[in-house]
Amino acid sequence: MKDEDHSTAHPFRIIGEDRPSRWLITCDHATNRVPDWVAGGDLGIATADMARHIAYDVGAAGLARRLARAMDAPAILSDFSRLVIDPNRGEDDPTLLMRLYDGTVIPANKTAGPAERERRLERLHRPYHRALERLASRHPARCICAVHSFTRQLRGRPPRPWQIGILYSHRDARLGPAMVQACRDEGWITGENQPYSGHLQGDSIDRHALAHGRPNLLIELRNDLIATPAGQQEWADRLAPVIARTLAKAGL
């Protein structure tokens, strides 16, 4: 059984494509990599900023890999920074190419016009979504679990109190509220559609789950909790049975 496919190294990674679970684990913001054909591989911001949550979801890739393994599920992870182009945004979203994020100006994006936007869409964003949809379509009863992380505190904002957030759309509340309660029953400080809204037109869940009627979860872990492999494994081991129980109780 193929565990990981490196042939698609540029826009995404696929892990365990042949695993049998109906779940597909996705990680839209897995890496801070900048392809060398984008501004010479340097967006013009400090190395410290490229290591922050503005460039990728810290710890999310490791959590997604370990969660997929624990659930015997396939996974797909992006392989380009969200600052290059955000795969969790629709093509017409004004934040697709961020020029300012959490106090940091992105110089390489300030002058990126329509032609550069189209180039990044064609080489990164669209291939990622084509691969995601292909994997989603492989199982007739596919469920999608999107893995993200959030920073404990945005600049100039109060600290966020949650350990974990469960996001869901008003268009599909079959799993989200039950997962919130299941997390709270475990004693985790859990945000319901916090720290972000659970519905964003054109995002990955909207495109690959809601549009097809696929059951879905979007899980946000506070990134300091999953910054190390040990933390990622701990939370994967915690989450896998809770996700399975939540789906089983829903009878979907």
Score class of each variant (00 low, 15 high):
Phe80Asn: 08
Leu96Ala: 11
Phe80Val: 11
Leu77Ala: 09
Arg99Met: 12
Ala64Tyr: 10
Ala64Arg: 07
Arg89Pro: 02
Asn88Cys: 06
Asp93Pro: 09
Ala64Val: 03
Glu91Gly: 02
Leu100Phe: 12
Arg69Pro: 00
Arg52Cys: 04
Ala55Phe: 09
Glu91Cys: 01
Ile85Tyr: 03
Asp49Lys: 07
Leu83Asn: 12
Leu67Tyr: 13
His53Ile: 07
Gly62Tyr: 13
Ala61Met: 12
Ala55Lys: 08
Leu77Val: 02
Asp92Gly: 10
Asp49Gly: 06
Met98Tyr: 04
Ala55Tyr: 06
Pro74Asp: 03
Ile54Cys: 06
Ser81Met: 08
Ser81Asp: 08
Asp72Ile: 00
Arg99Pro: 04
Gly59Leu: 03
Ala75Asn: 01
Ala51Val: 00
Arg66Cys: 05
Ala55Val: 14
Asp93Asn: 15
Arg82Cys: 08
Met71His: 04
Met50Gln: 14
Ala48Thr: 15
Glu91Met: 07
Met98Ala: 15
Leu77Arg: 02
Gly59Arg: 07
Leu96Met: 05
Arg69Lys: 13
Asp72Lys: 09
Asp86Leu: 06
Asp57His: 04
Asp86Arg: 10
Ala61Gly: 07
Met50His: 08
Ile85Cys: 14
Gly62Ala: 10
Pro87Trp: 07
Pro87Arg: 05
Arg99His: 03
Gly90Met: 04
Pro87Gly: 06
Gly90Ala: 09
Ser78Gln: 09
Leu97Thr: 13
Ala70Asn: 07
Leu100Glu: 14
Asp57Cys: 10
Val58Arg: 14
